[in-house]
Design a binder for these strands. Structure first.
Length: 863
RNA sequence: GCCGAAGUGGCGGAAUGGCAGACGCGACGGUCUCAAACACCGUUGAGGGCAACCUCGUAUGGGUUCGACUCCCAUCUUCGGCACCA
C-alpha cells in the first residue's frame, strides 16, 4: 500500500513583514474528506475474515436503533471504540469492527401512525442518513458486513431459531396479561400514562387483558447465567444480573384450608418460603389477588370486598405493588388455613404485595421475621410471634421491628420440639419432618421470569406459527421461511396491529392437513434481534443457516463489547441466554457471547435529561464537525471525562482539543518558528545545554508513550489525551531552540503522531504524509504502522522530589538522588530546616517511609 | 420502594491508602498588532499575611489509619434499570 500521487508538499514557511513566520493553518475541512475517501478506496477497514495470519480481535459496539439522526451520544459510543480498533490493529491484530441497525421497533410504527407512512420507508431513510453521518466520523467500520434486522434475510433466522427452540422445549405458549386499550390495542409500558393509567393516544382507561402469548424458557438457564467464570465483566453488571436472577433457596410447604361455614376445607395451598425455620411463627397467610383459589375460597359475605380489591390490584404497577414504603393493603377472604407443623388455624388474606408470578403466588406470613409481613400485621392487628431469638433476647415480649438478620448463636423459640436449634438446622429439620408426610420439599426459586416475546405489533419478526382447527398449533415448515411481513399495511391512524386485519396474511392452509388455518399475528420482541446479531455480522448473506459455524468458531466470542449500562439486565442477559440456547441446538460451540464488557456512560442533553427529539435537547454532531472537524469532536468526546461516566452534554471546552490539534500541526510543519510573547523564545531553558535538552525531550516522549499505552489499555482516554497535551507543551517549549528539528525532536514528533493516530486519524495521516514527502520517502498510511516501543533507559531520571510530612501534613519537599536509600532519606528529612522547625526539639516517635521512598511522614506526639 | 452507580475549584475533570485540584475550558494580566481576531507567555480553590508562610477545603455526620477524595457505618442528592422504549 504505497502511493505518492496526492501527497501534499510541506508548506513553505515565509517571513512576513512583521518578522513572524506565517505557516499554513490547520484546516480539518480540507483534510478529512480527502483521507476518508482514500481509506475507503484502499479498503483499509474491510476486514478479511479469512485472514488467519494475524490473531483476530472482534470489537463490537451495541448497534444503533435508526431513530433518524446520529446524535452526539452515538459518537460517544463509537469514537473510543474506533480508537481501540485502530490501536489493536497497530498491535498486529486482524480487527473486525462491524456495524448494523436494530431496525425493528416501536418508534417506526409511531411515525407511521402519526404521519401515515410506512415503518419500512421511515427506517430506511433514517439508516441512509445515519450511514452518511457515520462516515464523517472516520470510523473504521467494516461496512460490507452490515446487518439490518428488518431485512427478511435476517429475521428469517429469528423464525428458524424460534422453531428450533420450540422443538427443544425452550419455547412455549401461555396466557398472560397485557395493558390493553379498546381503541389502540396492546400498549407498551411507556404508552400508559398518568396515575389513572390511561392510553397516551386516545386517553381511554387502560385495562388488563389476558392473551395467549409465546415465552422463551430463560429460567432453564438460571443457574448457568449466575456463573460468570470465563468472562471479564464489570462487577456492577454481574451483581445486577445476579440480583435480577434472584436465586432463593428454601422450601415449598403445603397448608390445607380449614372447614368453616359454607366451606368444606381440604384444598391444598402451597407456599414458597426461604425461611422454613420460622414456620411456627406463621400467624396468617397471604395469597396474591390473582391466585386461582381466591375464587373458590372467598366466603360469600366477603365476596364484594374481595372482588373490588382484586380489580384495584390489577390496575397497579408491579413497582408500586412491591414498594415497601407504601401502606400495606389487603382483604381477609373469610377462610382459614391449617399450619401443617402445629395444626394451628390461621386466617387467609389477599394482598397486592404478593405477586402471582413469583414462587407459588402464596406466602405464609411470619410478621416477627419479615418486614412486609410485620407492617401488614400491624396494619391489620394480627399476632406477631417471635420464633427466632438472638442470644440475650427473651422468647416473648413485644417486638418493635421484624427480626430479619441472622446473629451468631441465635436459637429457635416457641417452636415446640425444634426449640433451641439454630435457624439453619431448625429449618432443615422442620422441612424433613413435613417431608415424611409429603407436605414439604426443599425448593429453589428464582426471581427471573421466562421471556415473553409476543408483541401485538406489525413492525417485528412474525412468529412462524399457524393455528389449525384440527391440528392446533402447527409450526411453519422450514422450507416456507421466512414468513414475510406483508408490505401493504394501513394503520388507519390507530395503534392496534394491522396484521390482524390483513386477510391475505392471515389465511393460510394448514401445513399438516391442508385445511383452512390462521397465521399467528404477533411478532417478536426486538430484543430477539439483538440477542444474536454479532454472529450474523460474520456471514450476513449466508442463506444456509443463521451462522456460519466455521466463522463463528474462528471469530467469536466477541473480544470486546461496548454499550450502555442501561442494558445490564435485559439485552445483556438475553444475549447470554440466546448464546447458550444456540449452543444446545448445536449452532455454536461457546457458552458466552462477550468475553470483555465495557459500559460507557450516557451523554445526556444539556438539561441533564436523556437526549430525545421530543425533548428538543439533541446535539447534532454535523454542526460541530463542520466547525471543528471530526478529529476535534472525537478528541473532545474522549477528553471530556472518564468513558464510563457520561453526563450532560456541553460543547464548552471543545476549543481545548481543537487548540491542541492546531499546536500539533504547528509543531510538525514548523519546528523552527517563534512567536512573540515568550521572553525565552529560541533559548534553551536555563541550565540546559543541547545534550541535556535532548535527553529531557526524549525522556518526556518515552514517559508519555509508556503512560499513554497504559491509558489505552485501561480505556482511560481522558488522561491519555491530557498526557499527549503535556508532551505537546514540552515540545512547544523547545520550538525554535537549537534542538528543534533535531533527532530527539523528530523522534518525539513521530511518537506523538503515532500515539495520537487512533484517536485523531485524519490529522495524523495528513501530517504523516507530509513528513514522508519532506523526507523523500514513499507514502504509507500511519494506520498501518506498528505501535512504538518504549525506550525504558530514556525514561530514567537521576533525581526526584520527595514530599516530607510531619504528622501527616506536608512541610517540605526534598530533591534527592533517585537511588537514595531509606536511612539516607530519613536523615535528609530530619536535617530539613523546615522539619526541625516543626519538630521544635521533640524526638520523632515514628518515621514512616512510604511507597519505597515515595513519601516520608514523621510522627511526633503533640504537646 | 428494590437493584446498580455517582457526588472534588466558576465549569469538564485528575489523583483508588501517601504532595488534593494533572490536563483543558473560562476569567484576568502581558507580548505581537494602528486596532481587533489569531498565535504566544504568565496568573488563577477559599481565607489571612508586606512577605516567608499559615489556616481551611473533596455532598453531610461519625469511624479505622502514622496518613483518607480513596476503606467502613449512617444520612442526603442526582443518574441508570425494574421485564412491552431501545
Amino acid at each position: 500500500m504505497t502511493d505518492t500521487a496526492d501527497t501534499a508538499k510541506i508548506v513553505e514557511t515565509a517571513e512576513s513583514g512583521d518578522g513572524r513566520t506565517r505557516v499554513e493553518r490547520y484546516d480539518p475541512t480540507a483534510v478529512e474528506p480527502r483521507w476518508q475517501a482514500r481509506w475507503a478506496e484502499l479498503g483499509l477497514h474491510d476486514t478479511d475474515l479469512a485472514d488467519t495470519s494475524r490473531p483476530k480481535y472482534y470489537m463490537l459496539t451495541m448497534y444503533p436503533y435508526p431513530s433518524g439522526d446520529l446524535h452526539i451520544g452515538h459518537w460517544y459510543i463509537v469514537t473510543p471504540s474506533d480508537a481501540l480498533a485502530r490501536y489493536r490493529r497497530m498491535h498486529g491484530f486482524n480487527v473486525f469492527f462491524p456495524i448494523g441497525f436494530d431496525a425493528f421497533g416501536l418508534p417506526a410504527e409511531n411515525a407511521a401512525i402519526r404521519e401515515g407512512g410506512h415503518p419500512f420507508t421511515w427506517t430506511m431513510q433514517n439508516m441512509e442518513n445515519m450511514r452518511r453521518q457515520f462516515r464523517t466520523m472516520g470510523a473504521t467500520f467494516s461496512w460490507k458486513h452490515e446487518v439490518v434486522t428488518a431485512d427478511p434475510s435476517y429475521y428469517r433466522w429469528n423464525q428458524w431459531m424460534f422453531l428450533r427452540f420450540l422443538e427443544k422445549g425452550l419455547a412455549y405458549r401461555k396466557k398472560s396479561p397485557v395493558d390493553w386499550c379498546p381503541n389502540d390495542g396492546t400498549l407498551a409500558r411507556e404508552q400508559v400514562e398518568g396515575a389513572d393509567r390511561h392510553c397516551w393516544r386516545c386517553g381511554a382507561p387502560v385495562e388488563k387483558r389476558d392473551l395467549d402469548q409465546w415465552y422463551l424458557r430463560t429460567t432453564a438457564y438460571a443457574d448457568e447465567l449466575l456463573d460468570f467464570r470465563g468472562i471479564d465483566w464489570p462487577e456492577p453488571i454481574r451483581i445486577q444480573q445476579t440480583n435480577w436472577i434472584g436465586r432463593s433457596e428454601g422450601a415449598e410447604i403445603d397448608f390445607e384450608t380449614a372447614r368453616s361455614d359454607g366451606h368444606r376445607g381440604g384444598e391444598t395451598l402451597r407456599v414458597f418460603t426461604t425461611r422454613p425455620d420460622t414456620l411456627f411463627g406463621a400467624t396468617f397467610m397471604v395469597l396474591a389477588p390473582e391466585h386461582p383459589l381466591v375464587e373458590t375460597l372467598t366466603a360469600p359475605e366477603m365476596r364484594a370486598e374481595v372482588e373490588a380489591y382484586v380489580a384495584q390490584a390489577k390496575r397497579r404497577t408491579e413497582i408500586d405493588r412491591l414498594s415497601t414504603d407504601r401502606e400495606k393493603t389487603g382483604v381477609a377472604i373469610g377462610a382459614s388455613a391449617i399450619n401443617p407443623i402445629n395444626d394451628e388455624q390461621i386466617p387467609i388474606y389477599i394482598a397486592d404485595y404478593v405477586l402471582s408470578g413469583y414462587g407459588t403466588g402464596a406466602i405464609m406470613a411470619v410478621p416477627a421475621h419479615d418486614e412486609r409481613d410485620f407492617a401488614f400485621a400491624q396494619q391489620f392487628g394480627l399476632p406477631i410471634r417471635r420464633v427466632v431469638a438472638a442470644p440475650g433476647t427473651a422468647a416473648d415480649g413485644p417486638m418493635a421491628d421484624a427480626y430479619v438478620a441472622h446473629t451468631e448463636g441465635e436459637r429457635l423459640v416457641n417452636s415446640g420440639p425444634f426449640d433451641g436449634m439454630s435457624a439453619d438446622d431448625g429449618g432443615k429439620a422442620i422441612v424433613a419432618k413435613l417431608a415424611e408426610t409429603g407436605k414439604a420439599e426443599p425448593k429453589v426459586t428464582y426471581r427471573l421470569r421466562d421471556w415473553l416475546i409476543s408483541r401485538q405489533r406489525y413492525w417485528g419478526t412474525p412468529i412462524p406459527i399457524i393455528y389449525c382447527e384440527t391440528d392446533g398449533i402447527v409450526p411453519v415448515p422450514d422450507a416456507d421461511l421466512p414468513v414475510r411481513l406483508p408490505e401493504n399495511v394501513d394503520y388507519k391512524g390507530r395503534g392496534d396491529n394491522p396484521l390482524t386485519l390483513d386477510e391475505a396474511f392471515l389465511r393460510v392452509d394448514c401445513p399438516r392437513c391442508g385445511g383452512p388455518a390462521r397465521r399467528e399475528t404477533d411478532t417478536m420482541d426486538t430484543f430477539v434481534d439483538s440477542s444474536w446479531y454479532w454472529f450474523r455480522y460474520l456471514s450476513p448473506d449466508d442463506d444456509e443457516g443463521p451462522v456460519d459455524r466455521a466463522m463463528a468458531d474462528a471469530w467469536t466470542p466477541v473480544d470486546q463489547y461496548t454499550g450502555g449500562a442501561e442494558h445490564a439486565v435485559m439485552h445483556l442477559l438475553y444475549s447470554r441466554f440466546w448464546t447458550k440456547a444456540m449452543r444446545d441446538c448445536g449452532l455454536v460451540g461457546q457458552d458466552e457471547p462477550f468475553l470483555r464488557l465495557f459500559n460507557q456512560g450516557q451523554i445526556l442533553g444539556a438539561d441533564g435529561e436523556r437526549m430525545s427529539k421530543s425533548r428538543g435537547n439533541v446535539q447534532d454532531p454535523d454542526e460541530l464537525v463542520a466547525r471543528y472537524g471530526a478529529d476535534t469532536v472525537r478528541l473532545y468526546l474522549m477528553f471530556m471525562g472518564p468513558w464510563d461516566q457520561g453526563g450532560p452534554w456541553s460543547p464548552t471546552g471543545i476549543g481545548g482539543p481543537h487548540h491542541f490539534l492546531s499546536r500539533v500541526w504547528t509543531l510538525t510543519i514548523d519546528p523552527h518558528g517563534r512567536e512573540p510573547g515568550d521572553p525565552d523564545a529560541g533559548n534553551l531553558p536555563a541550565g540546559e545545554d543541547v545534550a541535556a535538552a535532548e535527553a529531557r525531550l526524549r525522556s518526556a516522549a518515552h514517559r508519555t508513550l509508556r503512560d499513554v499505552t497504559a491509558d489505552y489499555e485501561a480505556y482511560h482516554f481522558n488522561t491519555m489525551v491530557a498526557k499527549l497535551m503535556e508532551l505537546s507543551n514540552v515540545l512547544f517549549r523547545y520550538r525554535g531552540t537549537p534542538i528543534a528539528g533535531g533527532a530527539a525532536w523528530d523522534e518525539a514528533i513521530r511518537l506523538l503522531l503515532l500515539m495520537l493516530a487512533p484517536a485523531a486519524p485524519h490529522i495524523t495521516e495528513e501530517l504523516w504524509s507530509r513528513r514522508a514527502a519532506e523526507a523523500g520517502r514513499e507514502w504509507s498510511s500511519i494506520h498501518t504502522e506498528s505501535w512504538p516501543e518504549v525506550d525504558v533507559a530514556a525514561t530514567a531520571e537521576s533525581t526526584r522530589e520527595v514530599p516530607v510530612q510531619v504528622n501527616g501534613k506536608l512541610r517540605d519537599k526534598l530533591t534527592v538522588a533517585a537511588a537514595i536509600s531509606g536511612p539516607e532519606l530519613e536523615a535528609a528529612a530530619l536535617a530539613s530546616p523546615k522539619v526541625t522547625a516543626f519538630l521544635a526539639g521533640r524526638q520523632p516517635d515514628k518515621i514512616i517511609v512510604a511507597g519505597g521512598g515515595k513519601l516520608i511522614n514523621i510522627v511526633v506526639r503533640e504537646v
